[in-house]
Design a binder for these strands. Structure first.
Lengths: 153, 153
DNA sequence: TAGCTAGTTCATAATTTTATGAACAAATAA
DNA sequence: TTATTTGTTCATAAAATTATGAACTAGCTA
């Protein structure tokens, strides 16, 4: 493999980025590695050597990544090694999931509003405004995605 | 204070929600408490009693929340106690910050693309498409916010 | 059959995060 | 002045997360 210093830095950066999203450190680093690797795949052994972590850690992380549908593998004829790669072509679906998650906050906000005895308070007015914003976004985000796709034809 | 069972449940729910965003447990619970409290504020002591945590934990968490501009306090004449409350009226600014953060991914994607020797690969094409999507969103999200505000007049 | 290769599993160790509580500070009250 | 209230700070404890490495499995290969 033998990556450049620059690539190693970016792996760390991508790693931290994914840690912020709740992934374990090794999981994030693997995503980073598969981002900068060229071609964009790596074997179990290459991952282990490049990231300097134990077999167990690599195995666990790859299991997580496959369960979350972020990584898949192919094999080559006559070889038993697996070549792991990011399912990056699914990025639009992942994004839709993220949108949904954020927008599910609307139902949480609703629960809070329902509990409030005084719905006229400043606080409650802000909550209502937030709720309306999320309803608005729920509508608009899919339209935005469609418009983006239209620009790509 | 003496909150209902339902409110305690929602505090936990909001707490977990914020843990997912990288906040410490107590920090998340305090945001939850200040969401459901009526009126929407609480003293140091009330927070400590309601959440059953130590003074140190409350103090540290409130420092974090104030540093991140999520919480502020007021005092009442003749009282030394502070009444902490969420700066919920700033929610639109917080949202803008979150938008920016997500969209900063564009520069990270760019760094990766620049490093690639073969820019014709399937992987690189997906990266380029992602990059274009984030550029598109960078443009459209502020417009969307404006349109939302227009509906509120 | 025995010996590799390519991983998986899991008890335990190392590390990091989070919470505690005692000692302290600063302001007010008595 | 001394006591009380309202917190803060920080060393240490407790808990949770993460990584290790040895033992294992399953499929080839010789």
């Amino acid at each position: 493999m033998n990556l450049s210093e620059k690539k190693r830095e970016i792996i760390e950066k991508i790693g931290v980025f994914h840690e912020m999203k709740g992934f374990q450190p090794v999981v994030g680093r693997i995503m980073g590695l598969l981002m900068v690797a060229e071609p964009a795949e790596a074997t179990f052994e290459e991952i282990q050597e490049e990231l300097q972590v134990s077999k167990g850690a690599v195995s666990t992380a790859l299991t997580v990544l496959q369960a979350k549908e972020r990584v898949e593998y192919r094999t080559k004829p006559g070889e038993r090694k697996r070549y792991f790669k990011l399912r990056i072509r699914d990025w639009k679906n992942d994004l839709k999931k993220e949108f949904d998650e954020v927008l599910n906050m609307e139902s949480l906000i609703n629960e809070i509003i329902e509990l409030k005895e005084n719905k006229e308070s400043d606080f409650c007015c802000s909550l209502l405004e937030m709720k309306e914003f999320f309803m608005f976004m729920k509508n608009e985000l899919p339209l935005l995605l469609k418009r983006f796709e239209a620009t790509r034809k």
